[in-house]
Write a protein that binds this DNA or RNA. Structure first.
Length: 164
DNA sequence: TACATAAGAATAG
DNA sequence: CTATTCTTATGTA
């Protein structure tokens, strides 16, 4: 498993990928976040190796995205290393939301034939792929911003970035 | 409109 | 089983 760290307007972002695809994209909001991530891989007996040149494609995508360009991450290969089947379904469904559009937790819940609105939030809170899985495009049904584990300022920033 | 509460699905411990 | 979660619907003022 390779990893690298990218700079972006609100801080740094941790990327990890295997041979199959991208596994983790997480904001390094605080110092302990890096420790948490390395500890997570350690518990899974996955070795991490700093290897920047493996991330040419991702680096380009992210930098262009943060320049305000309409980037499509749906073609990027992924490799889930965590999450239950239900959570992965939620993530894949969230991933279908196009650039600049928003959906509601309710919509996704009904899409999966469930009434468990909160379980959608619970699943998204476990989202390992920031931006690639656009959890920031999911709002509350009344249009309010909802919550965001990675910090509400980050969610607002991403939404403003996509709204021309 | 603004809170308080209940209901609800799934997960971690 | 209990607590928790990036929710929603209903009741009350």
């Amino acid at each position: 498993m390779f990893y690298t760290i990218l700079d972006f307007p609100l801080g740094k972002i941790f990327l990890a990928k295997s041979e199959k695809g991208l596994s983790l994209a997480s904001s390094l909001k605080n110092r302990n976040r890096f420790e948490e991530i390395t500890e997570f891989f350690k518990r899974k007996s996955i070795l991490l190796e700093l290897q920047r040149k493996e991330f040419h494609r991702e680096e380009k995508l992210f930098s262009q995205y943060f320049e305000g360009k309409k980037e499509d991450f749906t073609s990027l290969p992924l490799d889930f290393i965590s999450g239950t089947p239900y959570q992965r379904k939620v993530w894949l469904e969230t991933r279908k939301i196009p650039y600049g559009k928003t959906q509601t937790y309710k919509f996704i819940a009904e899409k999966l034939n469930h009434r468990g609105y909160r379980s959608i939030g619970q699943a998204l809170s476990q989202n390992p792929l920031l931006i690639v899985i656009p959890c920031h495009r999911v709002l509350s049904s009344d249009g309010s911003i909802g919550g965001f584990t990675g910090g509400l300022d980050l969610k607002k920033f991403l939404l403003r970035l996509e709204k021309p």
